[in-house]
Protein backbone atom coordinates (compact mmCIF):
# COMPACT_ATOMS: atom_id res chain seq x y z
CA UNK A 1 0.00 0.00 0.00
CA UNK A 2 3.04 2.25 -0.28
CA UNK A 3 1.78 4.44 -3.08
CA UNK A 4 2.35 8.18 -3.03
CA UNK A 5 0.51 9.55 -0.03
CA UNK A 6 -0.45 13.17 -0.62
CA UNK A 7 -2.77 13.94 2.28
CA UNK A 8 -1.21 13.65 5.71
CA UNK A 9 -2.14 14.11 9.35
CA UNK A 10 -2.21 17.66 10.70
CA UNK A 11 0.32 18.79 13.33
CA UNK A 12 -2.54 19.24 15.80
CA UNK A 13 -3.70 15.63 15.39
CA UNK A 14 -0.18 14.27 15.66
CA UNK A 15 0.59 16.35 18.73
CA UNK A 16 -2.67 15.31 20.40
CA UNK A 17 -1.94 11.66 19.51
CA UNK A 18 1.53 11.98 21.00
CA UNK A 19 0.17 13.74 24.08
CA UNK A 20 -2.45 11.03 24.45
CA UNK A 21 -5.47 13.33 24.42
CA UNK A 22 -7.35 12.09 21.34
CA UNK A 23 -10.54 10.04 21.55
CA UNK A 24 -9.92 6.32 21.04
CA UNK A 25 -11.61 6.30 17.61
CA UNK A 26 -9.27 9.05 16.40
CA UNK A 27 -6.27 7.21 17.84
CA UNK A 28 -7.23 4.25 15.70
CA UNK A 29 -7.37 6.31 12.49
CA UNK A 30 -4.09 8.06 13.32
CA UNK A 31 -2.32 4.78 14.18
CA UNK A 32 -3.63 3.18 10.98
CA UNK A 33 -2.48 6.10 8.83
CA UNK A 34 0.98 6.06 10.46
CA UNK A 35 1.19 2.33 9.73
CA UNK A 36 0.84 3.24 6.04
CA UNK A 37 2.84 6.49 5.99
CA UNK A 38 6.58 6.84 6.74
CA UNK A 39 6.36 10.63 6.62
CA UNK A 40 3.83 10.78 9.46
CA UNK A 41 5.69 8.08 11.38
CA UNK A 42 8.76 10.32 11.43
CA UNK A 43 6.62 13.30 12.45
CA UNK A 44 5.12 11.23 15.28
CA UNK A 45 8.65 10.54 16.56
CA UNK A 46 9.26 14.31 16.52
CA UNK A 47 6.22 14.94 18.67
CA UNK A 48 7.18 12.13 21.05
CA UNK A 49 10.57 13.83 21.37
CA UNK A 50 8.80 17.05 22.35
CA UNK A 51 6.93 15.06 25.01
CA UNK A 52 10.20 13.60 26.28
CA UNK A 53 11.66 17.11 26.53
CA UNK A 54 8.59 18.33 28.46
CA UNK A 55 8.93 15.46 30.93
CA UNK A 56 12.69 15.91 31.18
CA UNK A 57 12.23 19.58 32.12
CA UNK A 58 9.92 18.81 35.07
CA UNK A 59 11.08 19.83 38.53
CA UNK A 60 11.66 16.44 40.21
CA UNK A 61 8.87 15.31 42.53
CA UNK A 62 10.09 13.47 45.65
CA UNK A 63 9.34 9.76 45.77
CA UNK A 64 8.43 7.82 48.88
CA UNK A 65 11.34 6.12 50.66
CA UNK A 66 10.48 2.58 49.62
CA UNK A 67 9.87 3.51 45.99
CA UNK A 68 12.97 1.97 44.47
CA UNK A 69 12.63 -1.25 46.48
CA UNK A 70 8.95 -1.46 45.49
CA UNK A 71 9.93 -1.12 41.83
CA UNK A 72 12.51 -3.90 42.17
CA UNK A 73 9.80 -6.04 43.75
CA UNK A 74 7.54 -5.39 40.74
CA UNK A 75 10.39 -6.47 38.46
CA UNK A 76 11.04 -9.58 40.58
CA UNK A 77 7.40 -10.57 40.18
CA UNK A 78 7.64 -10.35 36.39
CA UNK A 79 11.22 -9.88 35.19
CA UNK A 80 10.84 -9.80 31.43
CA UNK A 81 8.12 -9.11 28.93
CA UNK A 82 6.87 -12.20 27.22
CA UNK A 83 7.81 -11.87 23.58
CA UNK A 84 4.53 -11.62 21.74
CA UNK A 85 4.45 -13.19 18.30
CA UNK A 86 3.59 -10.71 15.61
CA UNK A 87 0.18 -11.32 14.08
CA UNK A 88 0.29 -12.94 10.67
CA UNK A 89 0.43 -10.24 8.04
CA UNK A 90 -3.12 -9.65 6.87
CA UNK A 91 -4.60 -7.23 4.37
CA UNK A 92 -5.35 -4.61 7.02
CA UNK A 93 -2.78 -2.51 8.94
CA UNK A 94 -2.09 -4.07 12.37
CA UNK A 95 -3.97 -1.58 14.59
CA UNK A 96 -7.10 -1.97 12.46
CA UNK A 97 -6.73 -5.74 12.40
CA UNK A 98 -7.06 -5.68 16.21
CA UNK A 99 -10.39 -3.86 16.02
CA UNK A 100 -11.82 -5.86 13.14
CA UNK A 101 -10.64 -9.11 14.66
CA UNK A 102 -9.00 -10.29 11.45
CA UNK A 103 -8.83 -9.37 7.79
CA UNK A 104 -11.04 -7.44 5.40
CA UNK A 105 -12.99 -10.65 4.72
CA UNK A 106 -13.91 -10.83 8.43
CA UNK A 107 -15.61 -7.41 8.49
CA UNK A 108 -19.32 -7.67 9.31
CA UNK A 109 -20.80 -5.22 6.81
CA UNK A 110 -24.30 -3.78 6.99
CA UNK A 111 -26.10 -2.08 4.13
CA UNK A 112 -26.82 1.61 4.59
CA UNK A 113 -28.44 2.36 1.21
CA UNK A 114 -27.18 3.37 -2.21
CA UNK A 115 -24.97 0.28 -2.30
CA UNK A 116 -22.88 1.68 0.54
CA UNK A 117 -22.01 -0.69 3.38
CA UNK A 118 -20.54 0.08 6.77
CA UNK A 119 -19.21 -1.65 9.85
CA UNK A 120 -19.06 0.22 13.14
CA UNK A 121 -16.00 -0.62 15.23
CA UNK A 122 -16.26 -0.79 18.99
CA UNK A 123 -14.45 2.04 20.78
CA UNK A 124 -15.26 4.27 23.73
CA UNK A 125 -18.00 6.82 23.13
CA UNK A 126 -15.85 9.95 22.74
CA UNK A 127 -15.80 9.34 18.97
CA UNK A 128 -17.37 6.86 16.61
CA UNK A 129 -15.35 5.00 14.03
CA UNK A 130 -16.50 2.85 11.15
CA UNK A 131 -15.37 1.14 7.98
CA UNK A 132 -17.16 2.25 4.82
CA UNK A 133 -17.44 0.27 1.61
CA UNK A 134 -18.49 2.43 -1.33
CA UNK A 135 -19.07 0.81 -4.74
CA UNK A 136 -16.89 2.19 -7.54
CA UNK A 137 -18.53 5.32 -8.93
CA UNK A 138 -21.11 5.58 -6.14
CA UNK A 139 -21.79 8.69 -4.16
CA UNK A 140 -21.74 9.09 -0.42
CA UNK A 141 -24.65 11.00 1.13
CA UNK A 142 -23.97 14.75 1.16
CA UNK A 143 -23.11 15.63 4.71
CA UNK A 144 -21.74 18.33 6.97
CA UNK A 145 -20.14 17.98 10.37
CA UNK A 146 -20.51 19.28 13.83
CA UNK A 147 -17.13 18.09 14.99
CA UNK A 148 -14.07 16.82 13.15
CA UNK A 149 -14.25 13.94 10.72
CA UNK A 150 -11.22 11.90 9.69
CA UNK A 151 -11.49 9.75 6.58
CA UNK A 152 -8.62 7.43 5.72
CA UNK A 153 -8.67 5.59 2.38
CA UNK A 154 -7.62 1.94 2.68
CA UNK A 155 -8.44 0.84 -0.85
CA UNK A 156 -9.57 2.56 -4.06
CA UNK A 157 -10.00 6.33 -4.09
CA UNK A 158 -12.62 9.02 -3.67
CA UNK A 159 -12.97 12.54 -4.94
CA UNK A 160 -14.78 15.46 -3.41
CA UNK A 161 -14.95 19.18 -4.11
CA UNK A 162 -11.48 19.68 -2.71
CA UNK A 163 -9.29 16.91 -4.08
CA UNK A 164 -8.66 13.24 -4.86
CA UNK A 165 -7.89 10.87 -2.00
CA UNK A 166 -6.15 7.56 -2.77
CA UNK A 167 -4.98 4.67 -0.59
CA UNK A 168 -3.19 5.97 2.50
CA UNK A 169 -4.53 9.51 2.12
CA UNK A 170 -6.39 11.04 5.02
CA UNK A 171 -8.96 13.80 4.81
CA UNK A 172 -9.38 15.95 7.89
CA UNK A 173 -12.74 17.74 7.63
CA UNK A 174 -13.89 20.33 10.10
CA UNK A 175 -17.16 21.89 11.06
CA UNK A 176 -17.39 24.18 8.04
CA UNK A 177 -16.76 21.59 5.39
CA UNK A 178 -19.64 20.30 3.36
CA UNK A 179 -18.70 17.61 0.98
CA UNK A 180 -20.06 14.94 -1.25
CA UNK A 181 -17.41 12.29 -1.82
CA UNK A 182 -17.70 10.06 -4.88
CA UNK A 183 -15.81 6.78 -5.17
CA UNK A 184 -13.57 6.63 -8.22
CA UNK A 185 -14.46 4.24 -11.02
CA UNK A 186 -12.50 1.03 -11.38
CA UNK A 187 -12.34 -0.18 -7.78
CA UNK A 188 -14.65 -0.13 -4.77
CA UNK A 189 -13.47 2.33 -2.16
CA UNK A 190 -12.91 1.23 1.44
CA UNK A 191 -12.39 3.91 4.05
CA UNK A 192 -11.88 4.12 7.79
CA UNK A 193 -13.82 7.13 9.09
CA UNK A 194 -14.07 8.62 12.55
CA UNK A 195 -16.04 11.55 13.88
CA UNK A 196 -16.24 13.12 17.31
CA UNK A 197 -19.81 14.36 16.71
CA UNK A 198 -22.72 12.90 14.72
CA UNK A 199 -22.71 13.72 11.02
CA UNK A 200 -25.38 16.07 9.74
CA UNK A 201 -27.00 14.95 6.52
CA UNK A 202 -28.45 17.49 4.15
CA UNK A 203 -31.34 15.47 2.83
CA UNK A 204 -34.19 14.42 5.05
CA UNK A 205 -34.18 10.67 4.46
CA UNK A 206 -30.71 9.97 5.84
CA UNK A 207 -31.47 12.38 8.68
CA UNK A 208 -34.42 10.25 9.78
CA UNK A 209 -32.37 7.10 9.38
CA UNK A 210 -29.43 8.57 11.28
CA UNK A 211 -30.36 7.38 14.80
CA UNK A 212 -30.90 3.87 13.48
CA UNK A 213 -27.72 3.71 11.47
CA UNK A 214 -25.64 5.14 14.31
CA UNK A 215 -23.64 7.34 12.00
Amino acid sequence: MMNEIKHHLTDALLMAYSAGSLPEGFNLVVATHISMCDECRARMHEFDTVGGAVMDAEAPEGLSDGSFAATLALIAAEPKDAIVAKPAKGDLPAPLQDYVGGNLADVKWRKVGGGVRQAILKTDKSASVRLLHIPAGAQMPDHGHRGTELTLVLQGAFKDETDRFGAGDIEVASEDDHHQPVAEMGQDCICLAATDAPLRFNSWIPRIAQPFLRI
Binding site: S18, A19, G20, E24, N27, L28, A31, T32, I34, S35, R41, M44, H45, D48, T49, G51, G52, A53, V54, M55, D56, K86, P93, A94, P95, D98, Y99, T123, D124
Partner: peptide, 27 residues
Protein backbone atom coordinates in the same frame (compact mmCIF):
# COMPACT_ATOMS: atom_id res chain seq x y z
CA UNK B 1 13.71 10.51 28.01
CA UNK B 2 11.53 10.27 24.87
CA UNK B 3 11.16 6.53 25.36
CA UNK B 4 10.28 6.86 29.04
CA UNK B 5 7.79 9.58 28.13
CA UNK B 6 5.98 7.23 25.73
CA UNK B 7 5.79 4.51 28.42
CA UNK B 8 4.47 7.02 30.97
CA UNK B 9 1.95 8.45 28.49
CA UNK B 10 0.62 5.00 27.63
CA UNK B 11 0.22 4.09 31.29
CA UNK B 12 -1.56 7.40 31.86
CA UNK B 13 -4.06 6.68 29.07
CA UNK B 14 -4.58 3.22 30.50
CA UNK B 15 -4.96 4.20 34.14
CA UNK B 16 -6.33 7.74 34.09
CA UNK B 17 -8.44 7.68 30.94
CA UNK B 18 -9.21 3.95 31.00
CA UNK B 19 -8.85 3.92 27.25
CA UNK B 20 -7.22 1.67 24.69
CA UNK B 21 -4.48 3.22 22.63
CA UNK B 22 -3.98 1.69 19.18
CA UNK B 23 -0.30 1.84 18.23
CA UNK B 24 1.09 1.95 14.68
CA UNK B 25 2.26 -1.30 13.15
CA UNK B 26 5.89 -2.14 13.98
CA UNK B 27 8.22 -1.71 11.06
Amino acid sequence: STWIFTIARNRRIDVLRKQRRPEPEDL
